[in-house]
């Protein structure tokens, strides 16, 4: 319970922050790759404003949700790799639960089919 309470202090996340956390679920990555991954998931033609994305990444680091790490074998050592911290993963999960709750409510109120 304690951990969930820690995480809820960060909620709701800004959609872009949530996107960033999701992009790092599969393992460490670096700035350019994260932006391109999010753009690819948004669909063709999507173009993020990278400086603003990086601003949020820096803030996520400051909040302790992301942490710098070393890259995989053979990666360019000059690249600053980032990964999810334990609390980052917890916050992402809490945000996903929060959204799931909203979706369930929308379904029982018949906004979405299936209720």
């Amino acid at each position: 319970m304690g951990r969930r309470d820690d995480a809820s202090g960060f909620l709701p996340l800004h959609p872009m922050e949530f996107r960033i956390l999701l992009a790092l679920l599969d393992g460490p990555s670096y700035g350019t790759a994260i932006v391109e991954e999010i753009e690819a998931r948004e669909g063709p033609g999507a173009r993020l404003y990278p400086a603003n994305v990086f601003r949020r990444m820096r803030d996520l680091i400051a909040k302790g949700l992301l942490e710098p790490c070393t890259g995989p074998e053979g990666a360019d050592p000059r690249r600053g790799y980032l990964r999810l911290s334990r609390s980052g993963r917890a916050v992402a999960r809490a945000e996903a639960r929060r959204m799931q709750g909203l979706v369930e409510e929308a379904t029982t109120r018949r906004l979405l089919p299936g209720g």
Partner: peptide, 24 residues
């Protein structure tokens, strides 16, 4: 143009910003 941004942001992500811009 990037000179408008604060130092700490540039130190960490300046290279990524240039790379993305050149790619685009």
């Amino acid at each position: 143009l990037l000179g408008l941004l604060p130092r700490d942001l540039l130190d960490r992500f300046g290279r990524d910003l240039e790379e993305l811009h050149e790619g685009r």
